[in-house]
């Protein structure tokens, strides 16, 4: 008997599927990296234009750091819980996975609610993206991040639907892994928005 005969057909198929899944996850990783370049472009625009307030408000007078810290901690916690959800998925614990992702979704919704509430407030006091180059760059950068969060929330809703309807299959685990990567990635981008837009904006004279 050769060594390959010892492996059953099922083992080989499983191994092949693992390979295919990791290739797909790698593909998704490449997409995330290109998305990083998109954000880098928006950061560059913001960095160039942040002083061009055209007589309007500057970052220092406009943003409430208190609110932003709350948003940051909410997003960070959601990222952590999402990670726990992925661990649960890899342990084939469906109930825990669903609970973790529902919590992540709720925190994500809270984040989006706070952020768009803030946007609405800014627009209603006349400081919308039409006010100055600084505000255009700000709304584009932070709004693009918010849009990504919304897409992530939609994706989570779809995954929750799939899980509630069906089983925690291998393909569902792969999707959840990608979704987790996406969510962590958005958290990483937010570190820089928090530091460069909000904290540095408050420090500037």
């Amino acid at each position: 008997m050769t060594e390959t005969d010892v492996l059953t057909r099922k083992d080989i198929l499983k191994e092949e599927r693992m390979q295919r899944d990791s290739t797909r996850i790698f593909g998704f990783w490449v997409y995330l990296m290109t998305d990083c370049v998109l954000f880098a472009g928006l950061f560059a625009v913001y960095a160039v234009l942040h002083n061009n307030t055209f007589g309007g408000p500057s970052a220092k007078s406009l943003f409430s750091l208190h609110l932003v810290l709350t948003e940051t901690l909410i997003l960070l916690t959601s990222s952590f819980i999402c990670g726990l959800g992925i661990v649960a998925a890899h342990h084939h614990n469906k109930r825990l996975t669903i609970v973790a992702f529902l919590l992540t979704m709720m925190l994500g919704l809270a984040f989006v609610g706070l952020e768009f509430g803030d946007f609405y407030h800014l627009a209603s006091i006349g400081d919308s993206w039409r006010r100055s180059a600084f505000l255009s760059a700000y709304f584009t950068l932070v709004g693009t991040h918010g849009l990504h969060i919304c897409v992530g929330l939609l994706w989570m809703a779809v995954m929750m639907f799939r899980l509630l309807k069906g089983k925690l299959t291998q393909s569902n685990i792969r999707r959840l892994t990608m979704l987790g990567l996406f969510w962590h990635f958005l958290d990483v981008v937010w570190i820089f928005i928090f530091t460069i837009v909000y904290l540095m904006g408050a420090v500037r004279a």
Binding site: Q19, S22, I25, L76, S79, F80, I86, V87, T177
Partner: peptide
């Protein structure tokens, strides 16, 4: 094509917890 191979198996709750605490 084995980019992350067996690394697909996550068993790292403590890693996430450590990352979370340090980040906060």
């Amino acid at each position: 094509n084995n980019t992350s191979g067996k690394a697909i198996k996550y068993d790292k709750t403590t890693t996430y917890l450590a990352g979370y605490i340090v980040s906060v």
